[in-house]
Design a protein around this nucleic acid. Sequence first.
DNA 1: TTTTTAGTTCTGAAAACGAAGAACTAAAGA
DNA 2: TCTTTAGTTCTTCGTTTTCAGAACTAAAAA
Lengths: 152, 152
Amino acid sequence: MVQLTEKQKELIEKFGVIQEQMGLAPAPSRVNSLLTISDENELTFDDIRETLNLSKSATSNALHVLIALDRIGYKTKSGDRKKYFYSKLDQWKSKFKNDILALNGYIEMMKEIAINRNPETIEYNQKLDELTNFMEYFIEETVKIIDKWGHK
Amino acid sequence: MVQLTEKQKELIEKFGVIQEQMGLAPAPSRVNSLLTISDENELTFDDIRETLNLSKSATSNALHVLIALDRIGYKTKSGDRKKYFYSKLDQWKSKFKNDILALNGYIEMMKEIAINRNPETIEYNQKLDELTNFMEYFIEETVKIIDKWGHK
DNA sequence: TTTTTAGTTCTGAAAACGAAGAACTAAAGA
DNA sequence: TCTTTAGTTCTTCGTTTTCAGAACTAAAAA
């Protein structure tokens, strides 16, 4: 069980809501908030379950979701069967990059739409092309930006 | 009623799924796909409703959602009470910019978390700071990139 | 004035989602 | 071997989402 100040509890909810708006379910949002805001570096399954008043299943599922998203990790200690979960803050750069690169799928879709359009709708086809070009430019430049930060 | 080729129908579903994965509901996704893929520049309410086999309410709501998101627009013709809906492809640049700027809210949250952490958890606090700095850098540079495209 | 057109708004029902509780499993301890 | 620990998986249930159908509205036409 983790002892939290009122302020910390408030921040967990506030940050939780922000993460919900980004598409994460309520329980995983709260778990990730707790791991980000708590002053303990590592929390156990039961610390999390008790502190957030979640069921075992909700806790287990939330942790698996967050691990799949690479937002948290866990370590083990020899002679101790418990897992110690912690917030990963350093995956952000690669996460940003992956999100940006995911736009490539969208671009492929745009290209497929473009080649299947009536060539006579010139104006619209041009806009589609422009959008595709912009997105390709955007991805390329953004990846450069991210990589530049690494070399500072 | 809009006549579509099999290929177009296939693309509408495919693009529809992509948009669902981006958080849009099924009906708005299909409507936006139709307006993007159809060779007609403008479609009426009933064109959309009939082509996609949607109810009037679903059609109406989907169109309102897409208008609120600025993904589509409509024009009117004098002496004609119908609305002619069309896909907006040119809002993308400003949409990208807005999405990027929305990260500022996330940064504010990170800062609030940072000032409320125990100052003794030095390593973690440093990572939080780094993340915040990276995000500020990312926003600034990305906005520059987007603006540069406009001046080509 | 009544009817038609072009939608909008209001239920209600089906489906999908999220979390609780209980049953289960695998490893360690007694 | 039996029990405890540390979680995982399965089932169920309450919400929320999404859409259809019906009732409604406002403007134009008849």
